[in-house]
């Protein structure tokens, strides 16, 4: 799941928890939420900016080459 998707899922979970929800369902949602929070926080701590360069081949197709 991408960070963006996790954030969207967390929004859904919070909204559902704030509504009228069965206890068992609430617990399941809550656990899923905690898991997503952990994963999202971990991803934030893991900076990775890759720099590449776009190269067009003679036949008009493309290649992305990692720099340095």
């Amino acid at each position: 799941m991408t960070f963006e998707e996790r954030l969207a899922r967390l929004e859904q979970i919070a909204a559902e928890l704030e509504g009228d929800v069965e206890l068992a369902r609430a617990l399941a949602l809550f656990e899923e939420g905690i898991e997503n929070l952990r994963a999202a926080a971990a991803e934030l701590g893991n900076a990775d900016t890759r720099v590449q360069q776009l190269i067009e081949r003679a036949d008009g197709t493309f290649e992305v080459e990692t720099r340095e």
């Binding site: 954030l7 967390l10 919070a14 704030e18 609430a26 926080a41 934030l44």
Partner: peptide, 18 residues
Amino acid sequence: LVGDLRKLSLRMSGAARG
């Protein structure tokens, strides 16, 4: 983003406690 996560965490725990 950290702020966003924190807010979501508070919303979730508040709702679950309720």
